[in-house]
């Protein structure tokens, strides 16, 4: 019985993968044969053919990898610091429940600040951080991503640490468990799925904020910055190549997250 259910699920997952892939291939064929251009009324200048875009990616491997490194470092670094910070805030809010709600609404208010507004300001604030432009620029970009990622994690961590199954807390109390034990044995394990809920929001957000903060950075590097530079220079094919790269980074990082989630939360629910 159980085995059968597994199999059916596999079939379903196969189709969920297959349909988008078929759609993607169809879109690429339409694009390469320029039918898409006729449909959208675009020319091959603003919407270059996939073949040309791919060739630019292959021709410029080292340069593109260098830019990817810069972007991923900022995104992952910010995601890491932001998530840890967010989780700590969630813990603090749980330990001091009276203050918690107020504090977290401030954290989410900070996240509502449009990133475009804080990126140039952070550039000025971090000028003394290092004499090397690339280093201080990386630092400024990472802070932007950190701020973005903190909010999602803090709110979800707070929920994960507090939305316990009603009977479980009573059970712990009946065992006369200390607050620390409740925390370690009940609250923290309970918060793990919520961490992934937060990460599902903040992984794409971290990449978007890394790309955008590069626009304003002092040091010219990164996938986002290359998109901007090339569009201004009317090099649309190259800009598209970097857009494809940016999409790939996003998809891969999200894929890694889903794989990690699948591995860690196996057997839950």
């Amino acid at each position: 019985m159980k085995k059968k259910r597994y199999l059916r699920w596999d079939k379903q997952s196969a189709t969920t993968v297959l349909y988008p892939v078929i759609f993607g291939i169809l879109l690429l064929i339409l694009w390469q044969t320029q039918l898409l251009h006729k449909l959208l009324g675009a020319d091959t200048f603003a919407l270059p053919l996939p073949g040309r875009i791919l060739r630019i990616i292959f021709d410029n491997g080292p340069t593109i990898i260098e830019n990817i490194k810069a972007t991923v470092m900022v995104a992952v670094g910010g995601l890491f610091f932001g998530s840890i910070l967010g989780y700590l805030l969630g813990i603090i809010a749980t330990v001091f429940p009276k203050w918690g709600a107020g504090g977290l609404s401030i954290a989410s208010a900070i996240s509502a600040v449009p990133i475009i507004a804080i990126a140039p300001i952070l550039n000025n604030l971090t000028k003394d951080f290092s004499d090397v432009a690339n280093v201080r620029s990386m630092f400024a970009k990472t802070i932007v991503v950190t701020i973005t990622c903190t909010a999602a994690m803090s709110i979800n961590a707070y929920r994960g640490l507090n939305e316990l199954k009603p009977y479980s807390l009573d059970l712990m109390k009946s065992y006369a468990a200390s607050k620390l034990t409740v925390f370690l044995k009940l609250r923290i394990p309970n918060s793990v799925p919520y961490i992934f809920v937060a990460l599902r929001v903040s992984v794409p957000a971290s990449i978007i904020s890394a790309l955008v903060s590069e626009y304003f950075a002092e040091f010219i590097i990164g996938v986002g910055r290359q998109i901007r530079e090339n569009i201004v220079l009317a090099q649309y094919a190259t800009a598209w190549a970097y857009i494809v790269v940016a999409c790939a980074i996003g998809i891969i990082m999200y894929g890694i997250l889903l794989a990690a989630e699948g591995a860690l939360l196996k057997g839950r629910k």
Partner: peptide, 11 residues
């Protein structure tokens, strides 16, 4: 309110 201020400081 104090909570808010404190959390900000902590942040």
């Amino acid at each position: 309110l104090t909570a808010a201020a404190l959390t900000l400081a902590l942040t």
